[in-house]
Design a protein around this nucleic acid. Structure first.
Length: 478
RNA sequence: CGGGGUUUAGCGCAGUUUGGUAGCGCACCUGGUUUGGGACCAGGGGGCCGGGGGUUCAAGUCCCUCAACCCCGACCA
């Protein structure tokens, strides 16, 4: 009975994955559509997830020596145009401000789609000496890209993210920083979001506009589509030359700085939904779940039940856990389903029978297991349970990804996998962009990355048969 | 940006064919009984029928127009 009602609320992911995703976003109250095309309202529960992501990532950035700043939201057209590749990459999707009040502006302003040009302009002002380097800046802001089609979290016209921008004295330091931050993202996905990723370098075709090299972490969704979950770029000295960011070295010679940038956005919330969720709703990784434990008192009108439940809440909170107690007069069964839909990792039921036995009942969201827990030392038990849930979620997601990762040695195999088995395809590539484009035209599959962990699958390119230089992860992507 | 669909109470929908008092289910509010997997009884509140313009004595319904959202493509970091 309960299952039937749940199915009425959330479309099964096998039936219609896109609708399943939309249902979860709406039913779990993560976001709502707004009156502005392509923009969304991030609701308290969804924003709380972002705040937890932000809080933890920011703490890591602080540890790695980065400082937060805030750049303007507007970019003068002339500034945006200083780096040729960069402006060409973003031109189709920038929003322009042409008027201030009734007055037409002498120079129109672009609403930032990303802030490289702003950081560069600033760096050219504040960097003079090698003593000023490195500059390790980050900002948490929203950006605007005039997307034609949008989906909540995955692609919206305005979205929240962080963008790190650094300037270094040498190419080596910049490259080190680029990879260091890519690793930060990969570790964050594993340790906080329970999402396994493939790390690697983007091909020239997929490289960020204006970058020398772009690195990525790619994750795999339940439907077998890939999601670029974070990127880190090495700009070399290209932007420095365009924006004239020079410093005096120890020998009093002028040199250009070497720069990086790296970002992770609210898109990662889409990944959390699509990597972990099931037909009953969200499943949130404990480390970023706004509510880690929900307490449902049973028969709470009976004497002592609510008091004991509140005492339990306090005990868990004092142990540093994020706890909610639902003492509303809804039926317990309703509450069970509700918090399952919202992905709360652990539910605790406590009723007269439990109190009599000095215990409570736990139910974990990831696998549905129920168990009696002694009220003595309950905080430690719950912490251990949350840790186990995290590990299990990571293991499950890793298994799913591995099961959906295929190998193709020739183009027939490749085409067949692309058509019938959504997932990553590992295949050799010659390194030519024309070949990569041909693959995309024929199969709708794009290169996701050239993984750091290379395997030798074959000697020749999966498409053209020429000598292969790289093993590439391919896939259909969000 | 193309092709299709949708828009009526917070949510899901009927009503549009044939113009004539704005409906249903859930949710919400009040009171009571309930409480270990989405309770029940009784009473109650809530609508610029997506926006604008037209036709008509009369428009949710017919005509024009604009917009938002969904699905499939194209495009895309």
């Amino acid at each position: 009975m309960a299952d039937k009602k749940l199915v009425e609320q959330i479309t099964s992911m096998d039936e219609d994955f896109a609708q399943w995703y939309t249902d979860i976003v709406k039913k779990a109250e993560l976001a709502d559509y707004s009156g502005v095309r392509g923009c969304m309202v991030i609701r308290p529960y969804g924003y709380a997830i972002w705040e937890n992501i932000q809080k933890n990532l920011d703490a890591i950035f602080k540890k790695t020596g980065h400082e937060n700043v805030c750049m303007p939201m507007f970019i003068p057209e002339s500034l945006l145009q200083k780096e040729k590749d960069h402006v060409e990459g973003f031109a189709p999707e920038v929003a322009w401000v042409t008027h201030g009040g009734q007055e037409e502006l002498a120079e129109r302003l672009c609403v930032r789609p990303t802030s490289e040009t702003l950081f560069c302009d600033h760096y050219s002002n504040v960097i003079q000496s090698y003593r000023d380097l490195p500059k390790l800046y980050n900002q948490w802001v929203s950006v605007v890209r005039w997307e034609k089609t949008s989906r909540p979290f995955l692609r919206s016209v305005e979205f929240l993210w962080q963008e790190g921008h650094t300037a270094h004295a040498t190419a080596e330091e910049a490259q080190e920083e680029t990879l260091r931050m890519l690793n930060v993202y990969a570790d964050f996905c594993r340790d906080y979001l329970a999402i396994p990723v493939v790390m690697g370098q983007k091909t020239d075709k997929e490289r960020f506009a204006g970058a020398k090299a772009t690195y990525t972490i790619e994750s795999l969704m339940h439907d077998g589509k890939a999601l670029q979950s974070g990127t880190s770029h090495n700009f070399g000295d290209g932007f420095a030359k365009a924006f004239n960011i020079q410093y005096s070295n120890k020998d009093n010679k002028l040199e250009y700085v070497h720069q990086t940038s790296w970002g992770m956005s609210t898109r990662i919330i889409g990944a959390i939904i699509m990597v972990h969720g099931d037909d009953n709703g969200l499943i949130l990784p404990p480390n970023i779940a706004p509510v880690q434990v929900v307490i449902v008192p049973v028969a709470m009108h009976k004497p002592g039940v609510l008091d004991r439940a509140n005492a339990l809440k306090e005990e868990l909170e004092n142990a540093g856990l994020r706890v909610k107690i639902d003492a509303s007069d809804k039926m317990p069964g309703w509450k069970f389903a509700e918090y399952e839909m919202k992905g709360v990792p652990v539910r605790i039921e406590i009723g007269p029978r439990d109190i009599e036995n000095n215990q409570c009942m736990s139910a974990r969201r990831d696998n549905g297991e129920k168990a009696a827990i002694s009220l003595d030392g309950v905080a430690d038990s719950v912490k251990a349970l949350l840790a186990d849930i995290h590990n299990n979620m990571l293991a499950k997601a890793t298994k799913l990804r591995d099961e959906k990762t295929y190998t193709a040695t020739n183009f027939d195999e490749f085409t067949s996998i692309a058509e019938n088995k959504p997932g990553f395809i590992k295949a050799m590539w010659c390194g030519d962009t024309e070949c990569e484009e041909a693959i995309k035209d024929k199969t709708a599959v794009t290169s996701r990355c050239i993984p750091f962990e290379q395997e030798h699958i074959a000697d020749t390119c999966v498409h053209c048969g020429k000598k292969a230089t790289k093993m590439v992860y391919w896939g259909k992507a969000y």
